[in-house]
């Protein structure tokens, strides 16, 4: 190593000693250098279990504010010709009850199961569950075998069929990998709600920590009757529905 480099290293060591010294130094990008000294953001914790409650009685047929918000936040703009090859992280399903004819509508996405089949079947461990219950795909190890798509009972995963250029910086996604709803993990880690929750005009979506009995979602789940979709599979989903 040459002398100037050592000097720079010493400077960095000094810089690391305190942010106050840095503020005086001109022409320095303070944020980058001092980031290491900032208090660490809270890491995903096993004490938390993120979940969502969907009140389908408030969810209007034809409204897709949540879908637009999701696609905006996560940069899902695709031009693949075949609509069946396009990604859908969040979709609206219209339901008609056989016999009674009762109609309703609801958003369907990754249910963030406690026992996710996609994680069980993934050959490389790319499908994984974070400590706080969010089920994600690690695109660094996803080989694009699509076994998780075969195994998911909710059709919540999509495969990227074409090279992409329109990703948002915070939401990497790319050709040949499988993807799905992340609960907007980039927002959650900064203390915000998933984009769909904030976008719903009827406030039909409640997001929060299922394990915290003081959270709005836990209180509501204690109060109202809710269901897990395909409860027969005993996957213990993080997304619950009301009024199905």
């Amino acid at each position: 190593m040459t002398a100037p480099d050592n000097k720079r290293r010493n400077f960095l060591a000094a810089a690391g000693a305190g942010a106050a010294t840095l503020a005086i130094a001109p022409g320095i990008n303070l944020i980058r250098v001092s980031a290491a000294d900032e208090p660490q953001t809270k890491l995903a914790s096993g004490k938390v279990r993120w979940g969502m409650l969907v009140d389908t009685t408030k969810c209007a047929t034809g409204c897709d504010a949540c879908v637009s918000a999701c696609h905006q936040e996560n940069g899902i703009v695709e031009e693949v010709e075949d609509p069946r090859q396009r990604s859908q992280w969040l979709r609206k399903i219209d339901l008609v009850e056989q016999g009674t004819g009762r109609q309703h509508s609801l958003p369907m996405m990754c249910q963030h199961c406690a026992e996710p089949p996609c994680v069980d079947v993934c050959p490389t461990g790319a499908s994984f569950k974070r400590a706080d219950g969010i089920v994600l795909v690690d695109r660094h190890t996803c080989i694009g075998c699509r076994y998780c798509m075969m195994a998911c009972p909710y059709k919540a995963r999509s495969f990227v069929h074409e090279p992409l250029t329109t990703q948002n910086p915070e939401v990497p996604r790319g050709v040949g990998c499988v993807e799905g709803c992340t609960f907007c993990v980039q927002r959650i880690d900064r203390g915000k709600n998933p984009a769909c929750v904030d976008a719903c005009p009827e406030a039909a979506l409640v997001f929060g920590d299922l394990n915290d009995e003081n959270s709005a979602i836990a209180k509501k789940l204690k109060e109202v009757a809710s269901t897990q979709v395909r409860a027969d599979l005993k996957l213990d989903t993080g997304v619950r529905y009301q009024g199905i």
Binding site: V121, T124, C142, C145, F159
Partner: peptide
């Protein structure tokens, strides 16, 4: 989808997966 990651498939094995 990512045939170029054959080494990843060979070095990361999830034993709960039938694959």
């Amino acid at each position: 989808g990512r045939a170029d990651r054959i080494m990843v498939a060979a070095t990361h094995v999830n034993l709960t997966s039938v694959f």
